[in-house]
Each structure stands twice: as structure tokens, then as C-alpha cells.
Design a binder for these strands. Sequence first.
RNA 1: GGCCCUAUCGUCUAACGGUUAGGACACAUGCUUUUCAAGCAUGGAACCCGGGUUCGAUUCCCGGUAGGGUCACCA
Length: 486
Amino acid sequence: MNPYDPMREWIIYVQYIYITAIITNFADSFGVSLSRGMNIRVRFPPSPTGFCHVGTARMAILNYLFAKKHGGIIVFRSEDTDKERSTKEFEADIIDNLTWLGISWDEFYRQSERTEIYRAAIHTLIVQGKAYVSEEESKKEAGVMVKIIRLKNPGTTITFTDAIRGDITFDTTELGDFAIARAEDDPLYHLAVVVDDADMRITHVIRGEDHISNTPRQILIQEALGLPRPLYAHYPLHLAADRSKLSKRKGDVAVRSYREKGYLAPALLNYLATLGWTAPSGKEILSLDEMIGEFELADVHKNGAVFDIEKLNWFNRHYLQALPLRDFALESDKILQTSLHARGVAWNERIATSLAPLIRERIAVWEELRTFADAGEFDFFFAEPKLEPTYIAQKKVSTEDTVRHLQSVKKLLSDAPEGAYNDTENIKALVWEYASREGRGAVLWPLRYALTGQERSPDPFEVIHLIGKEASLRRIGTALALLSHI
RNA sequence: GGCCCUAUCGUCUAACGGUUAGGACACAUGCUUUUCAAGCAUGGAACCCGGGUUCGAUUCCCGGUAGGGUCACCA
């Protein structure tokens, strides 16, 4: 008997492969059918007590990506049970700004319109002896007695699984009999959340880690009511530059203020999404569809990230560059016109529109264009610049040489036919040989300064191309006249 | 302070026991058609500390430290 039978080994190997394939297949189909039958439902539960915060936007984005990835339903739930602080204006701001970002939802509710559901739940708890009405002194007004409804806390140890962090365990005895309502028809946050999540058949609760310690309280209420437990996922909060909580004092927190400064919605969306999540592909610039395709809760980070405005600016520059030039020009014209008008500089539609490509490579955010324009940095395209005679010559170049260069360039330019001014490259060709021979800096600096009156500007050929032959020759002439007085 | 979470360049991160620790932003230098911007190239820059486990730890475990969260009649 041969102890080593190749045929037998081969059969064993084939059987092994076959069985592995069956198991893998089974697991796969099981997994797929599970997620199909799951019918995922998530929620956006902002409290309308302030303007749409970037944190609210992040919450919505993460929930949105997860839901869309799995073909789920999104519920917008306005958590306005705090009657004193909630307003319709804030609610409208949140809806408006999320929509602006490109986020949408399938169902909409307001907790203030659902008191009957909470009343029933609270009533049940009291009747079953799981909650009780407690008469105690008001914490808001000393000496005033109020009634408050508290949950009878069984004091169990609760462990829940977090999709981002794994198992988290709490001893709930220290929570005591916490308050769940001010009255049967006046629920407090935890009660309303638990009742709504169950009623709206929420399957996944994706929220900031500031809610981790709220979770055991909510599970306690769920258990008292006999409601199912959704799956939890707590993502990290983002921080200010000094790693403290991002607040109004540490920078802008309202989505609307980024919008007003001229950040583009896809840029803010992209930045906010990737601030707490990395796409498996490693891509940083992602469209909404690409993000949906790549999103997995497992890839959401565990540690808090600093909100970096520089990185946001980088994203925004990218999206600004990607804008169709026509759309860009429309907006830049608007900003330019407002600025010029405010300072009484004559408007020229043709110049403004051709200026758009030059502006586009100089700004990351619209706000920068406003700043530049208001500082008069683009005025020379529309009006004669004011020249400071001592700035005309390049450093270490004599006035005589500068005059000579400007006269030579002026002649080269005036000898050229109008047609040569149609293209920046042609204009460059007119003076390039001369400038190279005589020293580019010595020739081109005075030319550029004569045309712009600015120490910083686009190159002289671009400027000549825009303002045209006549204006260019006139400005060079002005500079020469000024130099003759030195 | 109790409880909970977290810990890689200045910042955002990759790594899933063995890598010259990778990328992006920012920064520095150089190049390109003077200036500025953009672009391109190059460069400096990190595993919080101490114990284990292991042939071997940035990676796993424990402790410390630090940061964050939360301890409402707000959400």
C-alpha cells in the first residue's frame, strides 16, 4: 500500500475547495438576504434651538450616506419638545441648509405634533408601575412644588453593541430614577426619542458620541416599554483647533455662515463627510454618489478630528476650479460689479467676463474675491491706475534704462496690428525677444506696473490682452510722462 | 470628581505582529514667462509613557498620562 496516493490527495483537495465554496456561498447569500430584508430606516433628529450647525450637517450626511448605501428610508424628526427654545425659524434654517448641501429625506415629523403617542407611553408606564409621578421642588424656581414623572430604574447593567466602537457597558444604578416627562402630555427628550424611534421603526441610530452616555437611559426606557433596540453607531465629535469643543467663539459653526462666505455646497459636504470617515479607495475628493458607493459604518473614525479651515479651503478651491467657467463668471461678475459700484468705478461687462479665468486661479473661496475687489486690486482693469513714479523702475535699474525699455516696448506694441491683440501668446511674442535680450525683469516689471499700478497682479500680457491696444499704449505713455519728471 | 470614549507628522489620516511607517492639507526650497496666484518637483515633519504577551510590537493585553464626552424639570 502506497502511503502517498496523489489521486487520493487530489480528491481530498477538491472536496475541501468544494465544501469551502458551499459555506462561503451560503454565508454570502444569507448576508445578502439579511440586509435586503432589513429595510433600513434612519433618522435626522435635530432640535430647532439654533441655526443649522456643522455638527447637524455631519449627523445628516453620515446618516444619509448609510441609508442611501443600503436603499433605506430617512426620517427627518424635528425634536421640538423644548417649547421655550424651539422656533420655526431655526427649523426652517436647518431644512434650508441641509437641502442646500444636497441632503434629502423621505418622511417628516415634529415631536410637538405627536404628544398623544407619548401620553399613551407615559400612561402605560405609570399604570404598570414602571414610572411614577413625583412631587418635588422645582429646580428652576426655588420654593415652587412641581410634579415630574420619573422612571423606576431597575438598576441593571446594560451592554449594547456600537457599530463603530464595539461593546459598551454601563452600570445604570448611578442614573437613579431619572425624569422622563414633566407631565403625561409633556415628554422629555429620552422618552420622546425612544417612543419615536420605535414608532418610526428606526433600525439604525447614527449619532455623535455625546449620546453614548444617553444610550443606557434610552435602553432602560425601551425595556420598560417592551420596545425593540435599534443598532447604535456613535461617531466622534469634531473639535476646534485647540482640541476643545467647537463653539461660536472658536470659529464659525453655522452652515449658513459658510454659505454666506461663498463656500460651495459640494465642497463643504465633501469635507464634512471625510472629516469623520475615510473612503476605502483612499480618495479624498468624492461626489455624493461616490461617497454613497463607498460608505461603510466600519470605516467611520473613532477619534475626534480638528475642523481645519485650511483643508476646507483646499476642497473649496478644487470645486471652484471644477465649476463650468460660465457659472463661475456669472458669480464673479456679480461680486465684482457690487464692489466696483460701491466705489464708483465704471463697470465693463466684457472685461469682467474675460477676467473670470484670471480670478479663478487666485481664489479658494468667493469671500476672497470680495476682499480683493473691495481693496481695489482689480480696479486697473476698469479704470486708469494711479502710479507711484518711484515704483515704475525695477530695483537697481536706472530711470534712463527704464525709459528706454518702456519706449521700445511701446513702439513694438504700437507697430503691431489690432489682430495681434486677440491672443495673449501673440502679445507676448511681440516683446519677448526684446525683454529676453535686455533683461526680463528690467523690461517686464515697469511694463506690468505701468499697466496695473499694482505690486502684485496677473502678468502684463494677460492685462494687455484684456484692456486692449489703445489703453495699454496710453498707460505706458502715462508712465513715461511721470518718469520724465523724476 | 464618578462613569464612558479616544490616542500615528502642526492638522486630517493609512497600516489590521515583521514596512526605508504611506498619502492629503499646511510649511520650506527650487523650477516655469519679471511680481502675485496657480501648477510642477524636491524636502523637513509622527507611532503619548511604562509594563507585559510574542522570536518580533505602532499594531494584542494591563496600568498610567493626556484629550474629549456625559452626569438637567435641554436636546
